[in-house]
Each structure stands twice: as structure tokens, then as C-alpha cells.
Computed example of a mutant assay.
Amino acid sequence: MAKRLPLIILLWLAADVYFYQALRAVVDPSAFLWAYWLIDLFLIIGIVAAIYVRRGSRTQHTLITWLLGLMLLSFIPRLFSLPFLLVEDIIRLFRGFPPRAWWVSELTLGMAAVLFLLVLFGITRGRHFYRVRRETIYFPDLPEAFDGFSITQITDVHSGSFTNAAGVQKGLDLVNAQQSEIILFTGDLVNNLASEMDRWIPAFAGLTAPMGKFSVLGNHDYGDYIQWATPEAKRDNLDRLKEVHAEIGFRLLLDEAITLFKDGQSITLLGVENWGKGGFHKYGDLKKATTEVPDDAFKILMSHDPSHWEAVTLDHHQHVHLTLSGHTHGMQFGIELFGFKWSPIKYVYKQWAGLYRNNGRFLYVNRGFGFLGLKGRIGMWPEVAVITLKRTS
């Protein structure tokens, strides 16, 4: 990151200089010059400070949280308004570069103002703007007793980021309101420390489902992103987190399988430890989880990182019908309108939000319940997913 910092700052400042041209056309530049560039200066100082303070410290976390919000407020309205200026400049190029048109600059600033308000909503109210997303998935070999079986999935709680008890409870009430037969949690209960869940244990223990609550670990749950005094301290933290899962009523699956029975028929629920591509740890072992599972069993897999699906699950010798993941958060920033879906995270993860299918095997990637880094969500709202299994005739 430190090596890329000069390029990031250069691109950012270039966009600011370009946008400033619109300001100059409609506003006396002397009135806003210092304020406009002073904001950028403070943000640059903050970015450098966040990189070089102690990794995983509370100071670094606070800096990153504030910087992400302020940078988005500053940069996003400018970035998405620039096409108006670019089109005008192309026209001006063929006309000998006359002065900028007043109305184009006003349109650009108006667009920036609207985007500013949208971003402001996202970082102030978006973190608890929970949305229920529903999917019905059809399978020819689903046991008849499970036709219409409903699953509520939540993921990426990141309890260390929570401060608003009423906001969190709003999301948990929404989970219970779905009245699904089972609740599945697919990892990242905390940011780093098991103690982050202490104040939230009673609230999460209030989640109910007639056929139980089950969970797996995510990459943040292992404590890999902070410095520990000793290896034993890190191990004790993970042990405590496993206890927390039990205290909130979730059966934690660690590379293992359980059988769910209904009216004399059954399906298999699998849960693996975190497995992620790139630099993420590959703790999960799907082969171990399916050792005693019959080949013809109907299988639902909980695996935190969606990259596990293409890298391992699709090639697994047993047919895993449905995989539930999280991890990406939809980058907590994106656009979802009228069937169109976009977020910068799509350039990192091929499967990053919603339902995917490959040769009769399905993956659902939940956008996440909580938030991390950016203390909010912009367009990629926190999610409670309800998945209904149906049997095709």
C-alpha cells in the first residue's frame, strides 16, 4: 500500500484539479481556494498517518474509519460528476477552447451536491439500513420433506464496529421476523477480538429458529490482523470466540457436517473453516467435512469466502448443491438499480454479491450484516438473506 500511495494521491489530486475548473466558472475562486485544498491536505496527512501507526491498533482503526468516510464524501461526488466536464472539454477542443459554459458547471455542481447527500446518508444512516433479499432455488433431488424449506442467512457481523444498540437490534428483529426454519451465520463475528462480542451476546442470543442456528468462522475471527503478545494469547482469543458462538446459541461447524431431519427425510449441512484465495489463510478442509457424508446426500455448505466455491467446491468429488458465503461486503459501496449491479469489489471477486450458478451448483454471496473500515454503507446496504429451497417436479 505504501508503494502505491504516491500514485493514489496523484490521481486523486488530478481529479480535484479537474473538478475545480467547474467551481471557478461559477464561484469566486478566492472565496473557496484555501478551504478546497486544505481538505485535501488534511486527508493526505491522515492517510500517511494511518499507514504508519501501529498495525491493528485502536488509533489506526479510528483513523481509517474517519478517513474512508471523509474521502468518499470528498471524492465520489467529484468523480461521478467529471464526465459532464469531460464531454464539454471534448466539444471545446473542436471549438478552439472557449470559456466553460456556465450551465455545464452548474449541472456538474448540482450532480456533485446530490451525490454528496447520498454518500452522507450512507455513512450516517446506511450502516443499519437493513434490506431483506429473497431467493428461491429449485433442485430436482431436494427431499420432498424439505420442499419450501426456508433459510435465513446473515454474515460479517463485525461486532467490534457496532456502537448503536438500537440499530443492531433493528437488524436482529428483522432476522427473527422472517420466521425461517433455520438461521445460518457465515463468519466474521468480530473484527479481531472475542471481547468485541461481550455487550452483544444477549441480543444475538435472542435469534430463534425452530431447527437451530449454525455458524462458521471467517478470516477476521482468527485474530490474524493484530499483533499478539504471545501465540498463546492469540489461541486463547480464538478459544473464547468459539465459546461465544455457543453462548449466543449457534452450533459452530469446524470442517464438519451435521444432518437435519424433517418428516423422516434429511439434508446435510456442512461448515468449513475459512478458505480464501490470494493471501488469505486456507484453514478450511471440505474433504474432511464430507468424509462421512453419503455421495447422494443433499448438501448445503457454509464457507465464508466465496473464492472457495470456484477454487475447491465446484471440483469436489461430491455434489454440493448450495454454498452460502459472505466476506466481500459488496465493498459497502456500489450501485444496485433496476437489475443493474456494480461495485469495485467485482474486479477482485468474480462472485461478490447475490446468486450464482454453475452446472447445477449454486452459490449465494451475502452482502453482510455489519461493516468494517468504512463506518457505513453506500448503495450496498446491510443484508438479511432469505433463501427458500424448492423441489422441481
Score class of each variant (00 low, 15 high):
139 F>S: 00
167 G>S: 01
207 L>N: 06
178 Q>M: 11
129 F>S: 12
209 A>L: 08
152 T>P: 04
184 L>D: 02
167 G>W: 08
173 D>I: 05
210 P>D: 06
172 L>P: 02
191 N>V: 06
148 G>S: 10
153 Q>L: 14
183 I>M: 08
126 G>A: 03
115 L>N: 10
154 I>A: 02
109 L>Q: 08
192 N>K: 12
140 P>S: 10
218 G>A: 11
182 I>Q: 05
143 P>G: 05
156 D>F: 04
119 V>K: 00
174 L>M: 15
213 K>F: 07
111 M>E: 07
189 L>D: 05
191 N>M: 09
129 F>H: 15
199 R>N: 11
182 I>H: 00
133 R>W: 00
120 L>A: 14
126 G>Q: 03
113 A>N: 05
126 G>F: 04
202 P>T: 03
211 M>L: 15
161 S>R: 06
191 N>H: 05
112 A>W: 04
144 E>S: 14
115 L>R: 01
149 F>L: 12
195 S>T: 13
139 F>C: 00
212 G>P: 04
159 S>N: 02
189 L>V: 07
214 F>Y: 15
163 T>N: 11
176 N>K: 08
210 P>F: 06
217 L>M: 15
171 G>R: 05
153 Q>A: 08
157 V>M: 12
190 V>N: 04
181 E>G: 14
156 D>C: 04
151 I>N: 07
197 M>Y: 00
183 I>V: 15
126 G>S: 03
200 W>G: 02
137 I>L: 14
161 S>T: 10
184 L>E: 00
175 V>I: 14
153 Q>P: 08
200 W>N: 01
112 A>K: 03
162 F>A: 01
108 T>Q: 04
170 K>P: 09
120 L>M: 11
164 N>G: 04
210 P>G: 05
127 R>W: 08
125 R>A: 09
176 N>G: 06
114 V>Q: 09
109 L>W: 01
117 L>F: 14
193 L>H: 13
193 L>F: 14
154 I>T: 08
123 I>A: 01
150 S>D: 05
162 F>T: 01
130 Y>Q: 09
215 S>G: 15
119 V>L: 06
116 F>K: 07
198 D>R: 12
197 M>G: 05
166 A>E: 15
190 V>W: 01
118 L>S: 00
145 A>C: 05
202 P>H: 04
193 L>W: 14
113 A>W: 10
158 H>I: 05
129 F>L: 12
140 P>L: 03
147 D>Y: 11
